[in-house]
Design a protein around this nucleic acid. Structure first.
Length: 513
RNA sequence: GCCAGAGUAGCUCAGUGGUAGAGCAGAGGACUCAUAAGCCUUUGGUCGCCGGUUCAAUCCCGGCCUCUGGCACCA
């Protein structure tokens, strides 16, 4: 069995989870579920980044222990992912001993190898903001903005990682591995970035300024800062399982350059470890109309849609609407369009009318198909085409297109029903018409079963519910489940099921005032 | 400024060197198993602008315009 290790970025838990956090986990989950269906041995890692200045400050402000603070905030993120049906196998927290151990071991190893050295850094420091400033922070006239308060030039000793000496290696690696970063155009951006010489990477903070971190093993007066802590989670979580390298590190475009595309491969190289096999870089959800929506009383926080319309509707929208790698607009209006036309009217209604007709015309037991005439042959041919297109699409992360194709098949199934008009056949006692009735009921149910099997990784609970009302227990071999057959013969179906109730009034957001 | 992405029907987006596509919205119709759903038909676009290559460009090349994002070690 092929092993498949995939990770999300770990979230910085100083704040509340938002749409961007949710999307990345759902996207990764869809990939993980798809790979499992394809037969891979999947290991899916997500987690939380829990160290750093902001966490330390927030905890202090609340007067609680930093560990207690992250225990709570981290749990909020994790609860959201559980709610969204994210099927992670492991949730790593950077404050866990298993992580700290690995980070310290690697830092020591690199220090021993001479990859880390101490040097003095001179710069302008803002006491109020507790940070060093850059030239670009200055006002045009050379003064410092008000928010920084008093700015002084200070000198501080710190530890640096020899990033620079790996620059040529990295350029060579990226040139040879054109598909390291998905989508490809992102890789070009990285190579552009690498045209400028890199500086070595400062990896420490003195404990007087930051104590909430992992102490450097070779100098306990410092903690390690950000990247040697956070990035290493992908490795530390599986160091003992022998799963490294990851097949994909899934990240947002904001943390590609330089952290994941530059620091991360170089850190691994310096440790003698292989880089991940790929970086999957997704875009952002834009909410330019958010303010306007707020004034109209619409849901401001997209996550509220989960409570209102259900997990699968939310997952479906995220995957259907976003072309992986690009940005997308998130609006409640667009969500409702997808929800109403695709989930409620097209798929949901197909479920309900199938159950109703089977109950009314066949006593709730699905008959066997008897004839395969043109309409049946056409639908089946379209199914085979759809399935054969969707699998490669999903393999290439083109889930939005795959969903579109699947919905087109559902539409064709609805059209098939119109063509056969079982409600007319049901009124006839003619043997031929009765046979056609049985065939049409069997055909629509089989088409429905196949369609929801094909979107199972996007809408797992919906698929499960529909299988349930069809009286069907799917087998373990997903590819086998996608074969048009007679799996539902004799199945006892439920009377009715409204899966995606239309919000009232139709098409309009409910008034909240 | 540099780099990248995007500019195609009212909206969201596909797409190909050879007379432009889908979904939604709009219009009309037949039906009734169904979530006032579904089905059929249909209106609608000089494919950002200007040049070039080509027998032929929305798709290739050059220039320009507009929008979005990035431009590091947040030391």
């Amino acid at each position: 069995m092929k092993s498949f290790y995939i990770t999300t970025a770990i979230d910085y838990v100083n704040g509340s989870p938002h749409l961007g956090h949710a999307y990345e986990k759902v996207l990764t989950d869809v990939i993980a579920r798809f790979r499992r269906q394809m037969g891979d041995q999947v290991h899916f890692l997500t987690g939380a980044d829990e160290h750093g200045q902001k966490v330390q400050a927030s905890a202090k402000k609340l007067g609680v222990d930093a560990q207690k603070y992250v225990d709570e905030t981290s749990a909020v993120f994790r609860a959201l992912y559980d709610r969204l049906g994210v099927s992670y196998d492991d949730f790593i927290r950077t404050t866990e001993p298993r992580h700290k151990q690995v980070v310290r071991a690697i830092l020591q190893q690199l220090f021993d190898k001479g990859e880390i050295y101490q040097a003095e850094y001179k710069g302008f420091y803002s006491t109020r903001q507790e940070q060093f400033l850059q030239e670009k922070d200055r006002n045009p006239d050379g003064t410092w903005p008000e928010i920084f308060g008093e700015v002084t030039e200070i000198v501080e000793a710190n530890y640096f990682f020899k990033l620079r000496q790996y620059q040529d290696w990295l350029i060579g690696f990226l040139t040879e591995n054109e598909n390291f970063i998905f989508p490809r155009f992102r890789q070009k951006q990285v190579l552009e970035f690498l045209k400028e010489p890199l500086n070595d990477l400062c990896i420490s903070r003195p404990k007087e300024r930051l104590e909430w971190g992992i102490p450097l093993p070779f100098d306990e007066n410092y903690v390690t800062y950000v990247w040697f802590d956070a990035l290493l989670n992908y490795y530390s979580a599986v160091a003992e399982k022998g799963l490294w390298p990851a097949d994909w590190n899934v990240i947002g475009k904001d943390i590609l350059v330089p952290p994941h595309a530059v620091y991360w491969p170089i850190m691994l190289k310096a440790c003698g470890l292989p880089p991940p096999k790929g970086l999957l870089v997704h875009g952002w959800w834009l909410q330019s109309g958010a303010k306007m929506s707020k004034s109209k009383g619409d849901a401001v926080n997209p996550l509220e849609l989960v409570d209102e319309f259900g997990v699968d509707a939310f997952r479906y929208f995220l995957i259907r609407e976003m072309n992986v790698g690009q940005d997308s607009e998130f609006t409640r209006e667009q969500f409702l369009v997808r929800y109403n036309s695709e989930l409620a009217n097209n798929l949901g209604n197909l479920v309900n009318r199938t159950l109703n007709m089977t109950t009314r015309f066949a006593g709730g037991v699905l008959p066997a198909a008897e004839a395969a005439e043109e309409p049946e042959k056409e639908l089946r041919a379209l199914w085979e085409k759809t399935r054969d297109e969707c699998i490669p699409l999903a393999e290439g992360f083109q889930f939005h297109t795959a969903l579109e194709r699947t919905m087109a098949f559902v539409t064709a199934t609805n059209a098939y029903i119109e063509k056969r008009a079982p409600w007319k056949l049901g009124k006839s006692a003619e043997p031929r018409e009765q046979a056609l009735l049985r065939t049409s009921l069997a055909t629509m149910a089989e088409a429905l079963r196949l369609a929801v099997a094909l979107i199972q990784h996007v809408t797992p609970s919906t698929t499960e519910k529909i299988n349930g009302v069809l009286g069907y227990a799917p087998g373990t071999d997903w590819r086998e489940e996608l074969v048009w057959g007679a799996k539902l013969d004799g199945a006892k179906v439920a009377g009715a099921l409204v899966l995606f109730p239309r919000p009232a009034p139709a098409g309009k957001p409910p008034a909240t005032s």
